[in-house]
Measured scan of single mutants.
Amino acid sequence: AITFRFEGQEKAKKFYEKLMRQNLEATIHIHGDEVHVTVH
């Protein structure tokens, strides 16, 4: 698994949606202002 870190939720959401379109499995974790997107 690879984890990407984002400042702010907007960028993270766009990235997450892009992964979903590519049929990749990903989970999102929100830590205050920092958002972690883990790709499995």
Rank of each mutant, 00 (worst) to 15 (best):
T27W: 09
I30T: 06
L24Q: 04
F15C: 07
E17W: 05
H36M: 09
T27S: 10
I28N: 00
N23S: 06
T27D: 09
A12V: 02
N23K: 08
L19F: 02
G32W: 07
K13G: 05
D33H: 09
I2Q: 05
F15N: 00
V37P: 00
K11W: 08
V35W: 15
F15Y: 03
I28M: 09
R5N: 05
E10L: 06
L24K: 06
L24E: 02
K14A: 13
K18F: 15
K13F: 14
Q9E: 14
K13H: 10
E17G: 03
R21H: 06
T38G: 02
R5L: 12
E25R: 12
H31Y: 13
K18C: 15
T38P: 00
Y16N: 00
E17V: 04
F6Y: 02
A12E: 01
V37E: 00
M20F: 04
I2P: 09
V37F: 02
A1P: 10
T27K: 06
E10D: 10
Q22A: 12
H40T: 10
E17L: 07
L19R: 00
F15H: 01
Y16R: 02
A1Y: 15
R21E: 11
I2A: 03
V35M: 03
N23F: 07
E34I: 13
I28S: 01
E10Y: 05
Q22S: 10
G32D: 06
I28F: 05
G8H: 13
A1H: 15
H29N: 06
F15R: 00
A26W: 07
V35S: 02
R5K: 13
H40Y: 14
E25C: 12
N23E: 05
K11H: 10
K11G: 10
I2Y: 05
Q9I: 15
F4N: 05
D33S: 11
E25L: 13
E7N: 11
A12W: 04
F6I: 04
K14C: 13
V39T: 03
R5Q: 11
D33L: 11
E7I: 13
I2W: 06
V37Y: 01
E34H: 14
I30W: 12
F15M: 03
T3I: 14
A26C: 05
E34N: 04
L24V: 13
E25T: 13
A1D: 15
I2G: 03
E10R: 04
R21L: 12
E17Q: 07
G32I: 05
H31S: 11
K11Q: 15
K14E: 14
E25M: 14
T38V: 14
I30G: 02
R21T: 08
L19G: 00
D33C: 07
T27Q: 06
H29G: 03
H31L: 10
Q22W: 14
Y16G: 01
E17K: 04
E25K: 14
E10A: 08
Q9A: 13
K11L: 13
E7V: 12
H40R: 11
R5P: 11
V37A: 00
D33F: 11
E25D: 11
Y16H: 03
T38N: 04
L19A: 05
E7T: 11
K13T: 08
T3L: 11
G8W: 07
H36G: 01
T3Y: 09
R5G: 07
L19N: 00
V35Q: 01
F15E: 01
R21G: 08
E25S: 12
T38M: 09
D33E: 10
A1N: 13
N23P: 02
A1R: 12
K14H: 08
E7M: 11
K18Q: 11
H29C: 12
H40W: 14
V37S: 00
K11E: 15
I30A: 08
T38Q: 06
K11N: 10
H31D: 10
T27V: 06
F6M: 02
M20V: 11
V37G: 00
I30V: 09
K18N: 10
E10V: 06
Q9Y: 15
Q22K: 10
E17D: 10
K11V: 11
T3N: 03
R21Y: 06
V35L: 03
Q9L: 15
H36P: 00
H40E: 06
E25Q: 14
F15V: 02
F6D: 04
Y16F: 10
E25N: 14
H36W: 15
H40K: 12
T38C: 04
G8P: 01
Q22P: 01
V35R: 01
V39A: 03
T3Q: 04
L19V: 08
Y16K: 02
Y16L: 12
T27G: 03
M20C: 05
E7Q: 12
M20P: 01
H40P: 05
F15Q: 01
G8Y: 09
A12C: 04
H40A: 09
N23Y: 10
I2K: 07
A26D: 01
A26F: 12
A1S: 14
M20R: 11
A12G: 04
D33M: 09
E34W: 11
E34Y: 13
K14L: 12
A1F: 14
M20I: 13
A26V: 14
G8I: 11
L24A: 04
V37H: 00
E7G: 06
F4E: 09
V35K: 00
K18T: 10
A26H: 02
Q22R: 09
E25I: 14
H36F: 14
T38S: 04
E25Y: 13
E25P: 12
H40V: 09
D33N: 14
R21N: 09
A12D: 01
A26S: 03
H31I: 14
I30H: 08
K18D: 12
F15S: 00
L19T: 02
Q22Y: 12
A26K: 01
V37M: 02
